[in-house]
Design a protein around this nucleic acid. Structure first.
Lengths: 157, 157
DNA sequence: TTCACTGCAAACCTTTTGCAATTCT
DNA sequence: AGAATTGCAAAAGGTTTGCAGTGAA
């Protein structure tokens, strides 16, 4: 069992959630998914793997995972991706603000998570200039991942 | 007719679009709307004003406006808001990147647009550290607008 | 007059709700 | 055993598609 799945399970247990078969299946799928997935895509992927999980359950499971900070929700698509769980800082981040800086490849839909240091300073500066009280921010970059850049410059077919 | 509506119409005309009654109605509604609106909300608002416009048409109109950079799409809700049309820079912005920094009040759902200077520098710095090629970014802040802050500290009912 | 655009009907996809059956602990 | 969770059925909500009719240029 991967670190992600293992850690997610320990968080769920600590919060009093039950570790059910569908929850484990979704965790394992999210762990290996290279891109973000919608509830439907998760259902289909599990079906394809011969595992029957109802779509409604997927929705409810994702809601639970979201609340526990185990997944990201990509704003631009509504799909979800596993959140890199950083043992020490996970709980604090969850309380103040979830890590929300995503690189989304417009070609292959792959998603990388970045911890972009300057953002906090930027938010503070901006906050000092505004009467609006900032509580959270969401930052998403779209563009081309390394692989798709090289493919674009090579394969002109 | 407001500056926004006027300017939007001139852009549409320049692109060869027809200035129809439904398009004008949607423009005028967006111009005065204090918050972002969904296609359904636009339809309902027009109905309430005694103007019949089909929901399907609203969808198609918004798609057109979006392509022409006349509106913002709020990622976190999918709703749309008029984009401040800045005469000189509108065309360039549209080509490179649309202004996408929004302050969203979680209480009243009001939306303000900010031109947050530091972001461009931040993006450049980030770009220099990544192999990912950034083409656009979306930045949304959630929190409390000035009005809702004071209401929260006063009215404890 | 002509073609873009709208309105209507219907289909489609996504998400939510209620309740009985299941299954973790 | 007991409560949380799932699966099923059904409804509700949002968005898209095709086509005939309308109206802006």
């Amino acid at each position: 069992m991967s670190h992600y799945t293992e850690h997610a399970i320990s968080i769920l247990k600590a919060q009093g959630y039950r570790i059910t078969r569908p929850r484990k299946l979704v965790l394992e799928l999210l762990d290996t998914a290279p891109t973000a997935l919608s509830a439907y895509e998760i259902k289909d992927a599990l079906d394809a793997a011969g595992e029957k999980v109802d779509t409604v359950s997927v929705y409810r499971i994702l809601e639970c995972f979201d609340q526990q900070g185990l997944i990201h929700r990509v704003l631009s698509s509504g799909k979800v991706k596993k959140c890199l769980l950083d043992d020490e800082s996970h709980c604090q981040r969850q309380q103040t603000e979830h890590c929300h800086h995503l690189l989304i490849c417009q070609q292959c839909q792959g998603i990388e998570e970045v911890h972009c240091a300057g953002v906090d300073a930027l938010v503070q500066t901006l906050q000092s200039q505004l009467s609006f009280q900032i509580k959270a921010h969401h930052l998403e970059f779209t563009g081309l991942c390394q692989r798709c850049q090289t493919e674009e410059s090579e394969g002109k077919d």
